[in-house]
Design a binder for these strands. Structure first.
Length: 308
DNA sequence: TCCCAGGCTCAAC
DNA sequence: GTTGAGCATGGG
């Protein structure tokens, strides 16, 4: 095996916390190694202190890993901005070195269409089936693996074929999103160059009263912008975050908003658009431009500790 | 068997 | 504008 040693330029960095935090769904841990597919190629990585040992598949450059893990980020600086209270402080301490990642926009978009109303283990299952069934095949270290299927192949699949990967009612949405991207109606690469507000409008906009991307709501859009477009002020609010906000930050909201957060948690009813926006804007006001980091630490901590 | 899961669409009000 | 049913599926 052709092993490469990469120096991690900015510490802290934790490979495990980063890959285990629900930003991405295809990495598999085997022993001390993590295997994944990025930028069209397979990689195997393991961390030892400030060194990242990796084996790169065909077509993958070390720079791709550098970009993927956002090694330019200076977490200490981020921490100093978001450390507003003991709750983030504890989460930061527990998951010290958790990076936000910069994954492929298309893969991230499909992943979070699939991620609605389900749990992380099943998201992984659905995506791995999707890749096996529709992804291009390659080999790494003599073993076959599948790439993430492109817009063309998912747009060309029937709803039944997609559903057979366990997608259920999501099959329709995945197909529709794939068709919009294939046709060029929605330009994903452009998102990186827009500011957060504009990029978000692009993802959830309606044309003639009809949504352009079926299956993408506010929460999914925020995840895409945070995990694949480096919009660090994005603050996705799912059930877990609703619990966190209700438990630790109720004083940041007026009574009506807090009560709606409560029904989100207990009745599992969705937040209305304006209410979602009001809450995430408040959290951005509280944490600042790196609110997305705070969100990710709080989310991961809540999930790991089984907050109720 | 029932409940929950990184929500969203659609229709009714 | 808000609310609520319905949604496919697998694990606890």
């Amino acid at each position: 095996m052709n092993e490469l040693k990469l120096n991690i330029p900015n510490l802290p960095f934790s490979l495990e916390h980063t890959l285990d935090s629900g930003q991405t769904f295809r990495w598999v841990q085997t022993g001390q190694w993590w295997e994944g597919v990025i930028q069209g190629g397979k990689v195997k990585v393991r961390q030892e202190g400030d060194a990242l040992f990796c084996a790169l598949g065909e077509g993958v450059k070390a720079q791709s890993l550098y970009d993927y893990f956002r090694f330019d980020d200076d977490l200490e600086r981020v921490y100093s901005r978001i450390m507003k209270d003991s709750h983030v402080a504890e989460a930061v301490q527990r998951y010290y070195g958790l990076h936000l990642i910069n994954q492929d926009v298309w893969e991230c978009l499909v992943s979070f269409v699939i991620a609605t109303n389900t749990n992380i283990p099943r998201i992984k299952l659905m995506i791995s089936r999707l890749c096996e069934r529709f992804g291009k095949k390659s080999a790494f270290e003599g073993k076959p693996f599948s790439h993430f299927p492109g817009p063309e192949s998912l747009a060309g699949a029937t709803q039944g074929e997609l559903a057979s990967c366990g997608l259920g009612y999501r099959a329709r949405f995945v197909r529709s999103v794939a068709q919009k991207v294939r046709s060029g109606e929605v330009d994903l690469e452009e998102l990186r160059f827009l500011d957060y507000g504009k990029a978000r409008e692009t993802l959830i906009e309606s044309v003639l009263g009809r949504k352009s991307l079926l299956g993408i709501g506010r929460k999914a859009a925020d995840c895409v912008l945070l995990f694949s477009c480096s919009k660090d002020e994005s603050f996705p609010i799912d059930v877990w975050m609703a619990r966190v906000l209700l438990r630790f930050y109720p004083t940041l909201f007026d009574a009506e908003t807090a009560s709606r957060l409560g029904t989100r948690v207990t009745n599992k009813t969705g937040l209305s658009g304006p209410t979602y926006d009001k809450i995430s804007t408040a959290m951005r006001g509280y944490f600042g431009g790196y609110a997305g980091f705070a969100q990710q630490y709080l989310f991961h901590d809540a999930r790991k500790s089984g907050l109720e």
